[in-house]
Simulated scan of single mutants.
Amino acid sequence: MSRTVTRRALLGSGIAATAALAAPHAADAAIRLDAVDVHPPGYPTVEAVKWMGEELARESGGRIRIRQFPSGQLGAEDDTLGFARYHAIHFCRVAVAALNNPFPETRALALPYVFRSTDHMRRVVDGPVGTGLLNVFERRGLVGLAYYDAAPRSFYNIRGPIETPADLAGLKIRSPLSDMVLETLAAMGANPTPLSFGGVFSALETHLIDGAENNLPSFESSRHFETARFWSETEHSFSPDALLMSKSAFDALTPADRELVKDVARRSVQVMRQGWDARVAEARRIVLAAGVAINRPDPAPFAAAVEPVVRRYIADPVLGDLYNRIRTEG
């Protein structure tokens, strides 16, 4: 698909798509659903949604198809979230941290050191906690379909290895637009700088920021490693991504098509995870070959630094209950 599609053109087509989806569907009516992602083709989340499109087309006899807009063609995650809420697009993949402010319950999944490992995170999002949290999006025009991997998240920067929180002192570290993440980075000693993911590369090159925190596949696919030559594996967050759908678009589908979309989305999680595990290993190989210095600091001082932030958030009864359920999950 051409990458010259503009946001204005998509919004115009979204209005037409809204009208089409709002009408009752005949059993053989063709349905085109638009999906967006800030990541490039080949990235595991993009590939999982591509698989969804192929599966939907196969199971519907070609009646339901997905058109993808990867590589941030339609803006930052906050932009695409708004487009989905107002039915200009149908699917968006968004980092949970970007959902923390409008959906406070999701903060439970983004708290620092709440998860012990990737396997722990996967068990939680596959279980009652994750399933329950998919329901919170409906109150603001979205349907939660699935959680994808986006972790572990660690620090990378242009200055030097991060061995202790003291090494973060004064460093301008990019943060997603989440109050809790901003507070977390500040508690570790960094100078958190809110910035969209798409703006990080130029900000690193111009030294507007000193570094960021993210996962290895994003560090590699964004080419941030070409400027930020130090990767420090603090693994302070295992926060996942959420695959969301416009509620008005979802409601306009027939009951059978709704169930098909939900089923295919659930099955896409395993496709994504297989691709994710392979991509993490490949990203590590690429950045090491490029000369990036990787160190693995003791996580204990970082966890201690953010403990006051965690305590403050889990004082909220809802978050406290979710936190305890996550921590006691197998």
Rank of each mutant, 00 (worst) to 15 (best):
R93M: 13
N191I: 10
A278R: 05
P240M: 05
P24V: 09
P299L: 02
T227I: 15
L10Q: 04
H25S: 10
A265N: 06
G130K: 06
S232Y: 02
K262P: 06
T193N: 09
G82S: 11
A19Y: 04
R116M: 07
V309A: 04
K262V: 10
P24T: 13
G141R: 04
V264H: 03
L142K: 01
R122A: 06
D126V: 11
D263E: 13
L145E: 07
S218I: 12
F103I: 04
P176S: 09
V129W: 06
T184C: 08
I89T: 15
R3N: 12
E307K: 05
V129C: 06
F83N: 07
P40S: 10
D28Y: 04
V264S: 03
A300I: 09
R312V: 12
D79Y: 06
D316E: 01
M180Y: 01
L171P: 01
R32T: 15
S246Y: 04
I173R: 01
H90Y: 02
T164L: 01
G61T: 06
F201Y: 07
L134F: 05
A9L: 15
S60R: 09
R3L: 08
P308Q: 13
A212H: 03
R284E: 15
M272V: 00
D277M: 11
M180T: 15
A283F: 02
A76R: 09
R159E: 14
G75T: 13
R229Q: 08
I326K: 02
A166W: 08
L81E: 06
M272Y: 12
L208R: 15
L21I: 15
I89G: 05
Y156H: 14
E163T: 15
P44V: 00
P217N: 08
F91E: 05
G72S: 01
I294G: 03
E235N: 13
V129H: 00
L253N: 09
M188D: 14
V125P: 02
A278M: 05
A249N: 09
Y86M: 08
R139V: 12
D79C: 14
A17E: 03
D277Q: 13
I158Y: 00
M1Y: 00
P194S: 12
T4M: 11
S239N: 10
A190S: 05
R325A: 02
V318A: 09
E329P: 01
P299T: 05
S239E: 11
L322G: 07
D263Q: 13
L244K: 07
R116V: 10
Q68S: 14
A23G: 12
E77W: 01
H236A: 06
H236R: 04
S154Y: 06
L182C: 10
W231H: 14
A203I: 10
Q68E: 14
